[in-house]
Nucleic acid binder design. Sequence first.
DNA 1: TTTGAAACACGGACCAA
DNA 2: TTGGTCCGTGTTTCAAA
Lengths: 159, 159
Amino acid sequence: MKLDKTDRKILALLQRDASLSASDIAERVNLSQPPCWRRIKRLEEAGVIQRRVALLDQRLLGLNVTVFARVKLSAHGKKSLPEFEQQIGDIPEVLECHTVMGDYDFLLKIVTRDIDAYEVLFRTRLSQMPTVQEIHSNAAISRIKITTELPLEDGQLKT
Amino acid sequence: MKLDKTDRKILALLQRDASLSASDIAERVNLSQPPCWRRIKRLEEAGVIQRRVALLDQRLLGLNVTVFARVKLSAHGKKSLPEFEQQIGDIPEVLECHTVMGDYDFLLKIVTRDIDAYEVLFRTRLSQMPTVQEIHSNAAISRIKITTELPLEDGQLKT
DNA sequence: TTTGAAACACGGACCAA
DNA sequence: TTGGTCCGTGTTTCAAA
């Protein structure tokens, strides 16, 4: 799928504010509504636009703690990776889990109500996973920047 | 602001799929459409629903590399924190920047097209910031889990 | 909570460049 | 192939019972 400049403009607008209507966007990219709508549809069908979601305020929901946990699996545990991935998927407090290169195996982003809730999660679930050898937890104190907007400027993308 | 069970159900639905209409949601939470719509509006006005965004497919956009960078500022650099935060905010490839407790000061999540693009970003921007003393970069190989859905189940929230 | 009306957005048919 | 105009349908939004 190839994306021209107009497509990228549309994507940039939508990943900033998905409540914009097709005609709002049409106006900003100098198109009339139907062709603009067709482009959006096409981007959705191609999967470039994965989904539309509401972002909630963590603080207002009382979810005050974000922890980054670096996890190392035991040597034999690496055979049962699917099991580990399955278990991680089942913990709603784990927002992200990435396999990383370097001195540890996974980086997890975890959100809980407070430190106590994290401690419980850590003790009863994370450290209980049979494959886990070692976990280093680092609590985040403040969010300097946090966005879901991917960089779409020229030169950062393959088109 | 207090949230009852119905509010939390609405939030759970919207943070999974913001394309649901007010009547779709009304149906699933056993309400008629207008009161359901009023609740959504109220949640938006209170800021619990911060915004609605489109999530794009990183791979399809050719953004194949995610790097987590651990940054340490120089001792005197900690005075000019606002400057650092400003500069971070201006780099679109930096999606997240958290202040963390522990052996380093910040954790950054960075997305680029490929390793070369990261190297350029690292050399020309990140390592050039006058306040930065040390950066450890860890490339993420695969995404096991990645979601923007906050955990809303009972007991995880203050209501 | 239900009804309903006005405004608006969506999405198809069809034509022009 | 891509954009434009026209128009029917459904949704949102909000007032009134």
